[in-house]
Nucleic acid binder design. Structure first.
Length: 429
RNA sequence: CGGGGAGUAGCUCAGCCUGGUAGAGCAUGGCGUUUGGGACGCCAGGGCCGCAAGUUCGAAUCUUGUCUCCCCGACCA
């Protein structure tokens, strides 16, 4: 993509409504624009990141055996009356009426819809287990939206739902998702700590929240210092994790059994990026989601639900990866892998080297943002650092005369001078 | 939902107290000089001063109402 034609309105100054780093940077980097409190338009750069995160989530869900479908954003109030949540949910639910005055709502979650879908189409235990998921926009009419996309009213969420014949099966589904979540977050350059958590409005007795540690996190969390060591090693050891203490402040009871001694207990702030629940037959019983068991008896299915805040993750990743100059994208979610900077657009030699590199990068399958604008060097450097692509290739008249370009690593700041061909080879690795 | 703050140019903000022709910097367009880390000079365009009532000869400025946005708390995937 050529920067000169890319819709990327970056800002030198910080809009006054933004308080935390990720919100400031998402506005400055031209990723999103607010349209109403907690409701955002995603501009091309932001959308590219959102799509990359979505893709990782999708790949890990598929790998775990979950199947993707897509349920609507607008739901009928009827099924929510069946589960009893139409009245229980409160003002967070955005209620609307259609032209026939039927009561509708903009879905805040999808337990009712998926349960209806399941009960209408699955009748036998032989069709179990199933894990179904979708990635869809939700709306929760938060009293106080804040922190940009981290706590928006409209947000993109991946939600999975598991259906099993018995508790043993449900527990297995839960563990499958648990592991998938750890892999998912790790691929995005995040260390997520699974915490014992309050189950909130969804209800149930087995639940974990996945938190990323960040000073600006909304939740207070407590965890065993051993997590810091595990995070450093980058391994996923389910059994080790299961043994270690970690809890949100809602569940944390100082001095209770299992709580580590003070010197091994860490207190921090966390951003909740995922939440998984086992809730048994809560919805299947209320909504009559029953299959016929091996002996012909009716069995209310055992269910669980598993959410990942996809749009929230964009903000969370920035909270975890930025510096004073701007964003530092992990390669796995970066909107482009390489930023190619032509320091002297219009100069025949510089243009020739850049055009050639740009074409070869494209041919190598490397998504590149080529800053071909006729502007000052400082503007391009600052802009490129702000949007945080993992690699920058700087092409200037002095270097071109000497047959070299500069390759800069955004995360480390390390720069090396080398030939255009070598740079290309390095990037293609 | 309780408490607080703010709405003036695309962005950041001044002007309001003490009513009298709408301002600055950045951004945008033109010209010139510049050119390896957000340049400089000159010129130009751009405003329902959130909206509505009221007070007044006259309101960005004072009064009332209303809408919106932000912050703290409570709540919450």
């Amino acid at each position: 993509m050529r920067r000169s034609s890319f819709f990327l309105p970056t800002l030198k100054e910080t809009p006054s409504e933004a308080q935390i780093a990720s919100h400031r940077l998402m506005l400055r980097a031209g990723m999103v624009r607010q349209s109403a409190a907690g409701i955002y338009s995603w501009l091309p750069l932001g959308l590219k990141v959102l799509r990359r995160i979505e893709r990782i989530v999708r790949e890990e869900q598929d790998a775990a055996g979950a199947q993707e479908l897509l349920m609507p954003t607008i739901q009928s109030a009827d099924i929510w009356r069946e589960s009893g949540r139409y009245d229980a949910y409160g003002k967070e639910m955005l209620r609307i009426r259609d032209r026939h005055d039927r009561e509708m709502l903009f879905g805040p979650t999808n337990e009712e819809l998926i349960t209806q879908l399941f009960r209408d189409n699955v009748k036998s235990y032989r069709d179990l287990p199933k894990i179904l998921y979708h990635i869809q926009w939700k709306f929760r009419d938060e009293v106080r939206p804040r922190f940009g996309v981290m706590r928006g009213r409209e947000f993109l969420m991946k939600d999975s739902y598991s259906f099993d014949l018995d508790f043993e099966g449900a527990k297995k589904s839960y563990e499958t998702m648990f592991t998938a979540y750890l892999k998912t977050f790790k691929r995005m350059g995040l260390t997520a700590i699974p915490m014992r958590a309050d189950s909130g409005a969804i209800g149930g007795n087995l639940t974990h929240e996945f938190h990323i540690l960040a000073e600006t996190g909304e939740s207070g969390v407590f965890y065993d210092v051993a997590y810091d060591e595990l995070a450093a090693k980058g391994e996923i050891d389910l059994e080790a994790l299961d043994r270690l203490y970690a809890a949100t402040d809602e569940k944390h009871v100082p001095g209770a059994p299992g709580v580590p001694p003070a010197e091994r207990l860490r207190e921090a702030r966390g951003i909740e990026v995922g939440h998984i629940f086992y809730f048994g037959t809560k919805y299947s019983k209320a909504m009559n989601a029953v299959v016929q068991g091996p002996n012909g008896e009716p069995v209310a299915v055992e269910m669980g639900s598993y959410g990942i805040g996809v749009s929230r993750l964009v903000g969370a990743i920035i909270e975890a990866h930025h510096d004073e100059r701007g964003i530092i994208w992990p390669a796995s979610v970066a909107p482009f892998q390489v930023g190619l900077i032509n320091l002297k657009s219009g100069d025949a030699a510089c243009d020739a080297v850049c055009d050639d590199l740009y074409a070869k990068l494209a041919k190598a399958g490397i998504d590149t943002l080529y800053d071909d604008r006729d502007d000052r060097a400082g503007v391009k450097f600052a802009d490129m650092d702000l949007i945080g692509l993992p690699w920058q290739v700087v092409v200037g008249p002095k270097g071109v005369a000497a047959g070299i370009v500069e390759l800069k690593n955004r995360a480390t700041g390390e720069r090396v001078e080398l030939s255009a061909e070598s740079a290309l080879a390095r990037l293609a690795e």
